[in-house]
Simulated scan of single mutants.
Amino acid sequence: MRVVAKFGGTSLGTGDRIARAADSIATAVADGHEIAVVASAMGSTTDDLLEAITFDASEPDRAEIVSMGERTSVRMLKAALAARDVDATFLEPGDDEWPVVTDEYGEVDAEETRRRASELVSVCDETVPVITGFLAEGPDGTVSTLGRGGSDTTAVMLGNYMDADEVVIVTDVEGVMTGDPHVVEGARNVGEISVDELRNLSFRGAEVVAPSALSYKGENLAVRVVHYQHGDLLTGGTHIEGTFENLVDLRERPLACLTVAGRSIRNEPGVFQSLAGALGEADINIDVVASGLDSVTLYVDAEQAERAENILHRQVIEQPAVASVTVDKPLAVIRLTGGELPTQPGVIHEIVEPFAAARLQIHDLVTSATSVAIVVDWDDRERGLELVQDLF
């Protein structure tokens, strides 16, 4: 089996942890597996180096400075493997075999990186390549970086381009947890999680796998997250399932828009809970939610509009914080789901501009971590769908 194993900064934070990482790699090699390693900077080295740059440094100089963390890690890990009689070679930008390259715009040159990664495969049965994560090489030979979480990106990208069977992300948590174990009690490991679910968690602060990395996960590439104390690269942890694609979807049935107004209700604890809870108890599903300082807007199936209005009206009567409820229908919702949306500057403008040019009114635009819901008049649904499909 061909495996790309990425060791995060915590898992390489001390000499003992580097030794533990080397032991797990040596065991996998002894069992006949082809292993390529991606190493992050030890501990908080990258942050420490960035904090030390208190002067006006150019971007190329900054990249060279922060690259020293990863450059040190690969040397330490290569030496630890050699001490275990494992043939290993460290790779960093500038080496002839270095795989990750960018174009003149600083974006990963997928074609050239794939070509170099495929060449790297040919040496994996003889040696363990230990590759600096986070770093790339520009067309002029200068060092650049892949951004925060770039070591994850390096690992999953190389796993994809090297036709690996699995990418193993070795970190300081037991895979993906039900909650932050440093904050909540009883947090437990989630055995499986979809790419969609994990990307949403990642974009909202869950530091497990960098969102940029998951865009490189293909259907046939397994990705797993394990704790550095586990000691076995090939078992345990959380399996990340599926792949992420850009999808454009039009809801088949019309929606009704119920707006509950009240002065500063966004600052009133429990208001939304009572509104949503009352609809939930009546088995009325809320499809889209939007809120402002003085209103909460709930979109439900148009067939449920009258019943939902009566339910919410009872909440208006009972709660002094809310004043009135109104209904608007029929409306349509067009959803664009795509893992790269949050990383594309100006993407909301790109979505809205064609609607303005076509004189189509957008009633609401609701964004989440990896999706955008566009609410339009029911009669404008087909034209709106075409506009979004033309963009994506």
Score class of each variant (00 low, 15 high):
263 R>N: 12
273 Q>K: 02
291 S>D: 14
292 G>K: 06
232 D>V: 13
291 S>N: 12
247 L>K: 14
227 H>D: 07
210 A>S: 12
238 T>L: 02
223 V>S: 01
237 G>L: 05
271 V>K: 07
270 G>H: 10
229 Q>P: 05
287 D>H: 05
282 A>G: 07
227 H>F: 10
287 D>P: 02
241 E>Q: 10
281 E>S: 01
257 C>S: 15
274 S>L: 04
215 S>M: 09
280 G>E: 00
270 G>R: 13
211 P>W: 07
235 T>M: 07
256 A>K: 03
291 S>M: 10
264 S>C: 10
227 H>G: 02
224 R>H: 08
284 I>P: 02
218 G>M: 12
268 E>G: 02
251 R>G: 14
256 A>V: 01
215 S>Q: 08
217 K>A: 06
235 T>S: 14
262 G>A: 11
272 F>A: 14
293 L>D: 13
224 R>C: 04
222 A>R: 08
238 T>A: 02
292 G>C: 03
247 L>T: 13
254 P>M: 07
267 N>A: 15
235 T>N: 10
249 D>V: 12
242 G>Y: 07
216 Y>C: 04
263 R>K: 10
237 G>K: 07
256 A>M: 07
273 Q>S: 12
237 G>C: 03
265 I>F: 08
257 C>H: 12
214 L>N: 08
207 E>S: 09
223 V>Q: 02
264 S>D: 15
287 D>M: 01
258 L>D: 09
230 H>W: 04
208 V>L: 08
246 N>D: 15
259 T>P: 06
226 V>R: 09
221 L>V: 07
239 H>S: 15
264 S>L: 13
277 G>S: 06
258 L>A: 07
219 E>N: 09
280 G>T: 11
252 E>A: 14
233 L>Q: 05
239 H>K: 14
227 H>I: 05
268 E>V: 15
272 F>V: 00
257 C>F: 10
267 N>C: 10
243 T>K: 10
